[in-house]
Amino acid sequence: MKIKESFGSKLFDAVNIFLMSILIIVMVYPLVYVFSASISDNAMVMSGRVVLWPKAINLIAYERLLGNPDLWISYWNTIRYTAVQTFLSLAVTSAMAYPLAKKGLPGRPLILFLAAFTLMFGGGMIPTFLVVQKLGLLDTMWAIVLPSLVSTWYLFIMRTFFEGLPEELEDAATIDGCGTMQVFLKIVLPLSLPVLVSIGLFTAVNQWNSFFDALIYLNDRSMYPLQIMLRNIIIAGSNVQGEGNTDYIETLKYAMITIATVPILCVYPFIQKYFVQGTMIGGIKG
């Protein structure tokens, strides 16, 4: 039997569809515009004639960028910084969150208080720089990875998720002879895949888009990540290879934005299912 919808229900659906359509347009339009501008003639872009679709298509900006060895060096640096930090961040955060999820942990309230304290107060940029300098980490990958390795917010989210896992599963594994580490690796982590993927995605995106830490801690140009090159082109207006490339600088900017954005856009569809699950769990239990 078909249920007849009320006028209020139909109006609610119509308003939702309208608002979601506007939101989609607002989010998709910048992506389309940036790509169109990157393959358009530079004069067309500068004159504002590129609104949605490309004008006088040419690929000179991509040819210049893809032929520049600095791009591939910075790409490799960004990939390894992101991969190492995401892996270590998940490993350390989960290793901290799991014992903190146990109410019988000695000193648990104090540890949680000290962790929460860092959400409100931090040492600041200069003390952090001095610590990195004294540890001899300047101009190394670890200067980028270690200072932001653990996020207290993600730690609390993961701890809350671990608290919601059935204790009976861990008890059954312990009775079968599993130790604490085996329970953690073989029972807890596989069940925590949604929250791990969600936090991993946020961590990876933050590191992929980060440039400030590299600007402070790295002086060696061969260690620069992709975002430093992007910053130099977009903000500083520097050319690619020290040449007078002002005749295509606008398309070069948009091409660099496209190249820097595509990898993250390609990864997201493959982990969307886990990402949605993880964010919903965090919203319900947090």
Rank of each mutant, 00 (worst) to 15 (best):
I3F: 10
I3H: 12
E5H: 11
E5T: 05
N16S: 13
I17W: 13
F18R: 00
F18L: 15
F18K: 01
M20K: 10
L23C: 14
I25S: 13
I25L: 15
I25W: 13
V26Q: 07
P30W: 10
Y33K: 06
F35I: 08
I39F: 06
I39S: 02
A43V: 15
V45S: 11
V45I: 14
G48Q: 11
R49G: 03
V50Y: 09
P54K: 09
L66S: 05
L66P: 01
S74K: 11
N77D: 08
Y81P: 00
V84C: 03
T86E: 03
L88C: 10
A91T: 15
M96L: 15
K102P: 01
K102L: 09
K103E: 15
R108E: 07
P109L: 05
F113Y: 14
F113A: 08
L114Q: 04
A116Y: 12
F117C: 02
F117V: 03
L119N: 14
G122D: 14
G123P: 03
G124A: 12
I126C: 10
P127G: 08
L130D: 07
V131W: 11
L137M: 15
D139M: 02
W142V: 00
L146N: 02
L146T: 05
P147A: 03
L149I: 14
V150F: 09
T152H: 01
T152K: 02
I157Y: 10
M158W: 11
M158K: 06
F162G: 00
E163Q: 13
G164Y: 13
G164V: 01
L165A: 04
D171E: 15
T174I: 11
D176A: 11
C178R: 07
G179A: 07
T180Y: 11
M181A: 13
L185D: 03
L189M: 10
L193N: 02
L196S: 05
L196K: 03
S198K: 04
G200H: 07
N206Y: 12
S210I: 02
S210W: 05
F211A: 00
A214R: 00
Y217Q: 00
L218I: 13
L218Y: 07
N219R: 10
R231F: 14
A236R: 12
A236C: 04
G237L: 10
V240T: 12
V240R: 00
G242C: 13
T246C: 01
Y248I: 04
Y254W: 10
M256T: 12
I257M: 15
I259T: 02
I259E: 03
L265W: 08
C266M: 15
P269E: 06
F270G: 02
Q277K: 14
Q277F: 09
M280C: 03
I284M: 14
